[in-house]
């Protein structure tokens, strides 16, 4: 083989190997650090893994926010309209967190199906709802519709 061509081939081989290693590493790290979003009804149905970083969210149920009297422990319930999920968190809640509003919590699910949140995110302004929560609620609504007779049909 021509020496220049061999040198080029070596370079190409090196680049291919390096790129493959980098790609494999990226895929692995993405797998390790990607957290999936689950709706409360998915969690209640047992679809979410326990002890793994996940995110969950929905509307914060009115009257469910319970602050501890002597620490920053707080617990609240989020719902997608079908099922409820209990969330516990320690720390300051975001400014836009409120009962009856959308929120997303990130953390690990414990064996009692309580989400031990390490981070709570609330929607960003008064008009905006996180797409996950919006989708979750509309999906839950559709499922509810499928299980119940259509109200319009019932009326007719």
């Amino acid at each position: 083989m021509h020496p220049i061509r061999r040198q080029r081939l070596q370079w190409v081989a090196l680049i291919v190997v390096a790129a493959s290693i980098a790609a494999a590493l990226m895929a692995y790290m993405l797998g390790q650090n990607a957290s999936y979003f689950y709706a409360p009804s998915q969690i209640v149905a047992g679809e979410a893994p326990i002890g793994v970083n996940i995110r969950a969210g929905g509307m914060v149920v009115e009257g469910s926010v319970d602050r501890s009297m002597d620490s920053l422990e707080v617990s609240f319930i989020v719902t997608d309209g079908l099922e409820n999920l209990q969330v516990t968190y320690s720390g300051i809640l975001p400014d836009l967190f409120a009962e009856g509003e959308a929120a997303i919590a990130a953390g690990k699910l414990d064996s009692k199906q309580i989400l031990q949140a390490t981070q709570v995110l609330a929607k960003h302004d008064e008009n905006y709802m996180p797409p996950e929560v919006a989708d979750t609620i509309s999906e839950a609504y559709q499922r509810k519709q499928q299980h119940q007779p259509e109200p319009q049909e019932a009326l007719q």
Partner: peptide, 28 residues
């Protein structure tokens, strides 16, 4: 680019709603 677009691609392909955390970015 991969870490930023992966959640969007996963969403389009209906692989679930994913968010990629800071540890991924810091690692590289």
């Amino acid at each position: 680019l991969v870490g930023t677009l992966y959640p969007l691609i996963a969403d389009v392909l209906e692989l679930g709603k994913i968010s990629v955390g800071p540890p991924y970015f810091n690692f590289f």
